[in-house]
Design a protein around this nucleic acid. Structure first.
Lengths: 97, 97
DNA sequence: CGGCATCCTTTCTGATACTG
DNA sequence: CAGTATCAGAAAGGATGCCG
């Protein structure tokens, strides 16, 4: 459900900020393409992890936020990140003296 | 580090059994190909999550088991699985009355 | 602003055949 | 038994242009 290039970054970004606009999200995820951002946001919303809020305004305004289910998943993601931080990839010494 | 088709199945299988042979692993993961099994086992071992034990016997005998690091990751994986079990995909009612 | 459609490249996976 | 090599297909991802 979260195995796509940008889903974890999106979720962690949404964890840091309760509600966030699409453009801001794009700015905060360097390298993400419009296509993948939308695609992953849609999947996360479909799976119930986040919620898409369309303000129906003009200019367009759409915000995303964690859903209840998403918040339930957060502790797991945070634990995973902690493990990750605690176990960085082995340094590549192939070029060292 | 664990985002590949068979890595979670492998890790959970290794969680259920402390040490297991390659062939047995292949039997217990229906649908896995020889190639992907070997590839993912190698990556997991390289990343330090599992250990490859070559008995140097003939006929060949190789077993895999969790490493200390792998065991540290287990609680996270188990928590993730629990979430997963508790939040199954929405039923598709499109064909129901 | 937010999103969709198209095209293209890269990555992942599987089937098969072969080795010590 | 465990693993490698090669090939072909599927899937994921990215770049670009267009729309309301």
């Amino acid at each position: 459900m979260i195995q796509s290039r940008w889903k974890l970054p999106i979720l962690f970004r949404l964890y840091a900020d309760p509600s966030i606009r699409t453009l801001q999200l794009k700015r905060d995820l360097p390298g993400v393409s419009q296509k993948m951002l939308t695609a992953h946001l849609r999947e996360l919303a479909r799976d119930g992890l986040i919620e898409r809020v369309d303000f129906g305004e003009k200019p367009l305004r759409v915000e995303y936020q964690m859903s209840d289910m998403g918040r339930q998943l957060l502790p797991v993601l945070i634990a995973a990140r902690r493990f990750s931080t605690g176990h960085p990839p082995e340094a590549d010494d192939s070029s060292m003296a």
